[in-house]
């Protein structure tokens, strides 16, 4: 039995296989419509996240399975003081697989240590969100038809942005990847990511606070939101939240086949005038998220 708590829990071969299956699902939806007949997914959302929960539920329903669960802690026994370990032992008796979101970092790992069914981390605070990373990888693969030989711009909150850290971790496994790290100086990428991932894997990268400086070189531009909940000081948040606003003018020098991604929800960091640009892929990304979750559920349930 396998759990997916961190993107590092999946080997490069496993990720490539998931992408292959997800692409096959996209082209042959009927073929997969009964793969999980009789199976139940429990979505345990200890904090609300409507889009991620719906993506998991939609994925399981599209596989012919069923869904149980709760969408916030107040409607579960957690509000009575039950531990994560106890909740998981109980829910494991009712379901075949669990997707879990929790505000506390490391809670899904605790769950995986006690669970008798596979656990998928659907986000634990500002820590990990592996299915978002899988979504990003599938989107890049679908749009560029490769995961190697890419220059990837990451823009916004690179300090606290878990999606950015996971994407760097995952993409660093592929050949000839170059990163352009675009952030204000207050939100630069943490030293340990540079040391333990970029330097360790001899990945080329450069840092800038100017979104347009390397725009003409990018194959992928991954925009992120500056998240209010990561700041202890409201003034810092207000000062930095609109530091980058991607609009049509800023894309003037960009490649014709640039892929613009965003984990969503966005606030102001991508102007709505970009939405109609053929390079804007952030809404397609949402749909890809369902297909990669379908592939992952099948893999963890060992459904052929």
């Amino acid at each position: 039995m396998k759990h997916v708590i961190d993107i590092k829990d999946l080997s490069t071969e496993e990720i490539d296989e998931l992408i292959k299956v997800a692409k096959d699902i996209i082209n042959n939806k009927e073929k997969y419509a009964h793969k999980c007949d009789g199976k139940q997914l429990a979505t345990l959302f200890f904090e609300p996240s409507t889009r991620t929960r719906l993506s998991f539920e939609s994925a399981m329903l599209a596989l012919g399975g069923e869904v149980i669960g709760f969408s916030e802690a107040s409607s579960s026994s957690v509000s009575k003081g039950e531990s994560v370990a106890d909740t998981i032992r109980v829910v494991g008796a009712y379901s075949d697989i669990i997707a879990m979101r929790h505000p506390k970092e490391g809670a899904p790992l605790v769950a995986s240590l006690k669970s008798v069914v596979p656990i998928i981390n659907a986000g634990d605070g500002g820590h990990n969100h592996p299915t978002q990373t899988l979504t990003d990888l599938l989107t890049i693969h679908c749009e560029k038809n490769r995961l190697d030989n890419l220059t990837i711009g990451l823009c916004g909150d690179l300090k606290f942005g878990r999606t950015v850290h996971s994407l760097i971790t995952a993409m660093s496994r592929y050949k000839n990847i170059r990163f352009v790290l675009i952030s204000p100086k207050e939100l630069v990428i943490p030293e340990y990511i540079k040391r333990n991932i970029l330097d360790k894997n001899n990945i080329e990268y450069c840092e800038t606070n100017d979104i347009e400086e390397y725009m003409d070189q990018l194959d992928v531009l991954y925009m992120t939101r500056v998240q209010k909940e990561r700041f202890f000081n409201e003034d810092d948040y207000v000062r930095l939240k609109d530091y980058y606003i991607l609009n049509k003018e800023k894309l003037e020098k960009a490649k014709e086949d640039l892929v613009i991604l965003h984990p969503l929800p966005r606030v102001n960091e991508i102007s709505t005038d970009v939405d109609d640009d053929k390079r804007a892929c952030y809404f397609k990304q949402v749909e890809y998220g369902k297909y990669i979750r379908m592939a992952l559920i099948m893999k963890l349930l060992e459904v052929e």
Partner: peptide, 21 residues
């Protein structure tokens, strides 16, 4: 010491640290 860590909620968990560097 991370207030957002699950160990800050669930005191009975072992405090486990891994040497990463």
């Amino acid at each position: 010491q991370n207030p957002r860590c699950i160990t800050s909620n669930e005191k009975e968990l072992d405090q486990v640290f891994i040497l990463t560097d």
